[in-house]
Design a protein around this nucleic acid. Structure first.
Length: 323
DNA sequence: GTGATTTGACCGAC
DNA sequence: GTCGGTCAAATCAC
């Protein structure tokens, strides 16, 4: 019905935000190109220039973030920030950490079916409902290779605290699959879960499947640094890094390293400040995706040629598959 | 005593 | 009917 020129407010705002982000990206690109022609204390060395660059990056991220929010608002039901199971992730999904907590857990309380009754039937419905709801949660898999010298037993080496709630022998698999959920499920209604399955082919590889994002306070509190000693061997669940969508975007700039090889010799890598050593994100099909946070992980090069993870990252592998 | 893990049972999906 | 995922009582560790 509506013609192309009859854009709604949301569409106009969306367009405007995208243009803003695009322009900021262009400016940043220009600055990056100009940098080699400048003196050794060029763009990236100068604190002021670096600040400008960071501002541009923030602007880009902000634009995209707003755009995503607009998309989410204007869609009814909201844009699939939660990817349908086993389907590719739409652009709006900032990869693996899609979706606002409210949508993940459903809109506030009402949909949690907890009517205070506590009867068996209510409990049953709650279970059924949550079971269905869980299926809608974003899901992605990471392959994690365990370093023998580290003596780690599993990939549960992350910042979030997990509680094991089950283990199951899987048909056709040599090793049982372990099921973990967020420790704060009951207290903070956090529905993040993960499954850990040792690979048949290579026992040193674990496939970690995450489902849902953390909505508990852990998702907000910066993760503590990993233990210095590599010898820890604790069978208790160890925390994992996962992010809320907004934090994903925000943290993106802290985890990215912009490669400027050839642009500025000697200092070819520009890192954003506050780079937490164990935060990293990969992308798949253009989507950003959380990667395991343990120091033993490394990053497969999913970023575009101009942006890549700092090569100084500890070496180990992760490989993420996003559903 | 408290909190985490283990493990058999249960349930829904296929 | 089978399988994967979850629950919850029993058990364990600190």
């Amino acid at each position: 019905m509506e013609g192309k020129n009859m854009l709604s407010w949301e569409e106009k705002t969306l367009l405007s935000e995208l243009i803003l982000g695009f322009e900021a990206a262009k400016k940043l690109q220009t600055r990056l190109r100009e940098s080699p022609s400048q003196s050794p204390s060029s763009s990236f060395s100068s604190p002021v220039a670096a600040e400008t660059n960071e501002f541009l990056v923030k602007q880009i991220l902000s634009s995209y973030e707003k755009s995503l929010l607009i998309l989410n608002w204007s869609s009814s039901p909201p844009v699939q920030l939660i990817p349908s199971p086993v389907t590719s992730v739409p652009v709006a999904n900032s990869g693996g950490i899609p979706e606002s907590p409210a949508s993940i857990n459903g809109s506030p309380r009402s949909e949690d079916f907890v009517d205070g009754g506590g009867s068996t039937e209510n409990h049953r419905q709650d279970y059924i409902f949550n079971s269905k709801k869980r299926k809608m949660l974003p899901k992605w898999t990471e392959k994690v290779r365990i370093s023998p010298e580290r003596g780690l037993e599993g990939p549960q080496d992350d910042v979030f605290s997990w509680r094991k709630y089950g283990q199951k022998d899987i048909l056709g698999a040599k090793f049982p699959r372990s099921y973990y959920r967020c420790t704060h499920r009951s207290t903070q209604n956090c529905w993040a879960t993960k499954q850990v399955q040792r690979s048949d082919g290579d026992p040193s590889v674990f496939e970690v499947t995450y489902r849902g994002t953390h909505t508990c306070s852990q998702a907000i509190t910066p993760p503590p640094p990993p233990p210095a000693s590599p010898e820890k061997r604790d069978t208790r669940p160890k925390p994992t890094i996962t992010r809320k969508p907004n934090e994903l975007l925000e943290s993106l700039k802290t985890s990215l390293t912009v490669r400027t090889d050839g642009l500025d010799e000697g200092d070819g890598v520009f890192s954003f400040p506050n780079t937490p050593p164990f935060y990293d994100y990969g992308t798949i099909n253009g989507d950003f995706c959380h990667l395991e946070s343990s120091p033993m992980f490394d990053v497969v090069d999913w970023f575009n040629p101009t942006v890549e993870i700092d090569p100084a990252f500890p070496t180990f592998l992760t490989e993420s598959t996003y559903y």
